[in-house]
């Protein structure tokens, strides 16, 4: 690997000051260090941000503020998170393994890179890694790549489970940059590939993620992930959903999909159709199908369309009997 310097920042200001163009912030390193070994990432400097004072989960405006340095295991085990945001705890526990969750941070989880085979192999073209070199995945191996929002430039998927739950929670990311601190709604944080897949997010160079703000939910929620083995595998498709039902009608509903696009895919069309609709399997199926009309499956990933459809219906059906906010 390329020689690099390692420095541990004592404050956010120091971290920002240490960041030059050739720098990566280092969280748990569970993805970044792998990518450095593969030569995919070749930073000249690592700035360790795990000792910054962002390692707490705090009450904030009726919701929570989750520090970027909080370990994934601690987030999933947090009593408040489990009671009020089961979708988030379930999503985190559905990711990786116990050992990796102990090491990985919330900020790093947000910023992990796609597991597309071509992206991870520096001897092959990839527009995300090497802009303009091409996308062999489109015609090559893509059975677990995108069906929604992809472009000829990139068919990668975002690998995070946690981010899918955060999408459904309307979370926003707290970012420290050159011009101070700002909040970025998750919808605006992640990008679709467009013609510049090298950028996963809208962050500017040097921006430091300091935390995630999660507003109050007030609905039952859950996360369901489908993968090729019982644990420790990336999603083929996952669904995060929150549902509020009264008198047999859907009062409110949020759905996000993982494993289908370059970012967590908020199923806005399905949500709109469901608000006010009868809380029945028929409604859920109609909405899921409407959402999937936008899908453009590739040669070998067409199975994700019925899989996502079924998973939306199943997850909403399982949520429906619960009372709002009972945390089950």
């Amino acid at each position: 690997m390329r020689p690099f310097t390692y420095e541990r920042a004592r404050s956010a200001d120091e971290a920002l000051a240490l960041h030059d163009g050739d720098t990566h912030y280092l969280g748990g390193g569970t993805n970044l260090v792998d990518l450095m070994r593969l030569g995919v990432e070749r930073p000249a400097r690592l700035v360790d941000v795990t000792r910054l004072p962002y390692d707490r989960i705090e009450e904030h405006g009726g919701g929570l503020l989750i520090g970027a340095a909080v370990r994934n295991s601690d987030l999933a085990a947090d009593r408040t998170v489990r009671e009020r945001y089961p979708v988030l705890a379930e999503a985190v526990l559905a990711g990786a393994s116990g050992q990796i969750r102990n090491q990985a941070t919330v900020g790093g989880n947000l910023l992990q890179r796609t597991r597309c085979s071509y992206f991870q192999n520096v001897t092959k073209p990839c527009n995300k890694r090497d802009p303009g070199s091409g996308c062999p995945a489109r015609e090559g191996e893509h059975h677990n790549l995108a069906i929604l929002g992809h472009t000829p430039h990139c068919v990668a998927t975002h690998p995070s489970d946690m981010a899918v739950a955060l999408a459904v929670l309307d979370a926003s990311v707290r970012v420290r940059g050159g011009s101070g601190e700002r909040g970025v709604r998750l919808d605006e944080f992640y990008r679709l590939p467009g013609d510049d897949p090298s950028r996963d997010t809208t962050l500017d160079p040097g921006d430091l993620v300091t935390g995630i703000q999660v507003p109050p939910l007030g609905m039952a929620s859950r996360y369901r992930k489908v993968r090729e083995r019982a644990s420790f595998a990336f999603a083929l498709v996952s669904v995060a959903a929150a549902l509020d039902v009264a008198d047999g009608k859907v009062l409110d509903c949020r759905v996000a999909l993982g494993g289908v696009a370059h970012r967590p895919w908020r199923a806005r069309r399905a949500e709109e159709m469901l608000r006010g609709a009868p809380a029945t399997e028929e409604s859920y199926l109609r909405a899921a199908r409407a959402e999937m009309e936008a899908a453009q499956p590739l040669r070998d990933n067409g199975f994700k369309v019925p899989l996502a459809t079924n998973l939306i219906v199943r997850t909403l059906s399982e949520l429906a009997p619960s009372k709002p906010g009972d945390g089950s």
Binding site: R115, S117, N121, T123, K124, P136, G140, E228, R229, F234
Partner: peptide, 28 residues
């Protein structure tokens, strides 16, 4: 789960690690 996928364009197996080549874990 076990499956190595040939990259017809480049001529090698695409799987490059145990995240891409699945073997059973304890939960299986």
């Amino acid at each position: 789960m076990e499956e190595s996928t040939m990259d017809l364009e480049f001529g090698d197996y695409l799987n490059h690690d145990l995240a891409q080549y699945h073997v059973p874990v304890c939960a299986d």
